[in-house]
Design a protein around this nucleic acid. Structure first.
Lengths: 185, 185
DNA sequence: GGAGCATACTCAACAAGTTGACTATAGGAG
DNA sequence: CTCCTATAGTCAACTTGTTGAGTATGCTCC
């Protein structure tokens, strides 16, 4: 039942269609919540049935009609209630780390390749995050932003993504060097 | 089908019962793979049915008899094959970050409490990881260990956990300060 | 003018993960 | 002598998450 709240929280950014949410999830929430589009559509149905979101049809000029969803008051209350609950322990499942754990019994070259690839992905993510961060800050300092902005949650969550990807790159570099030294290339 | 490989990799440490694996998962794999005991028992059944692990009963002195599982050659081959496959994108689901994203529309004091709690947990984990690290190094340097150890995978995976928890603490401290400054104390 | 791509979904089937209750043995606390 | 804890599991029901296919509109590219 936790995808529910992740979806509700995503709708804090304003009303949005399932399709848009699916994309937004990829960019803004992907750091701390993964979900496929199918999950979102299904859960939005349920949220609407439970009255936490409201749907309305929007006809568009040169595109298919879409259904946009908006938080109801009940939805906002659910978010408040959620922030008062103890967060469940986070879930992580990372194939790459399983490969690393098994590296000595496996194919070192391939695992090294996988780490290198991961470093690349992290660099790209980091670049996107930094751009997003600059849009938040608009030339000011972080301290300024945190003191004055209307909402700081999305910025703080983004900051975590930045820290995370930085660490990914740092760790990856160390691990890659160690494995390459081993496999004797 | 990826819990399979995580389990096989856990069995690289030596034969072990489902119960032991459940605990080992908590300490050594929990950094990058979460699973409940029930999942492990069920998956071990399947692995045994598929011939990737072998089970045997071990009677004990003052405890219930247990079934210990050991990798078969087929299991070792499966691990090798896995390290050659492209790792699937990692999955993360973190309630705490959802709360942070929603902090402006929620209960700031509670979210701050949740972050503080998380920092505590991370410090504890970190302490445990550092102790494990020292057992690996046995007084030597990291470079030495990485050059000479029989297996470096478990150490590198542990290192990632250490980096991760360090970052957790650093980010949490920043986020906590920002939120507390906001909620006005 | 057909192929592919982006938008905007729906449906069905299956796989994976979670929860709670239950069975047993044995040790120690009070 | 009962309760609590740790070991060592099993079973069933349920919820979530994943995958693949299918529908429909309209744009652009060649």
């Amino acid at each position: 039942m936790a995808l529910r709240t992740a979806l509700l929280v995503a709708l804090l950014e304003g009303e949005s269609s399932g399709y848009d949410l699916a994309k937004a999830f990829d960019t803004t929430m992907a750091n701390f919540w993964s979900a496929t589009p199918q999950q979102l559509y299904r859960e939005l149905e349920r949220l609407a049935a439970d009255g936490l979101v409201e749907a309305r049809l929007v006809e568009q000029e040169r595109r298919p009609t879409k259904r946009v969803f908006r938080l109801t008051e009940a939805g906002e209350n659910a978010i408040r209630a959620f922030t008062r609950s103890r967060p469940k322990a986070s879930v992580i499942r990372d194939d790459l780390l399983v490969q690393v754990q098994a590296v000595d019994a496996g194919d070192m070259t391939c695992v090294a390749g996988a780490i290198a690839h991961q470093i690349d992905l992290s660099r790209n993510k980091l670049a996107r995050y930094e751009r997003r961060r600059e849009r938040f800050l608009q030339g000011g300092t972080e301290a300024d932003f945190l003191a004055r902005a209307e909402r700081i949650g999305p910025y703080l969550a983004l900051l975590r993504g930045i820290h995370f990807e930085n660490e990914n790159i740092r760790w990856g570099t160390t691990a890659l060097a160690a494995i390459q030294a081993r496999s004797g290339e």
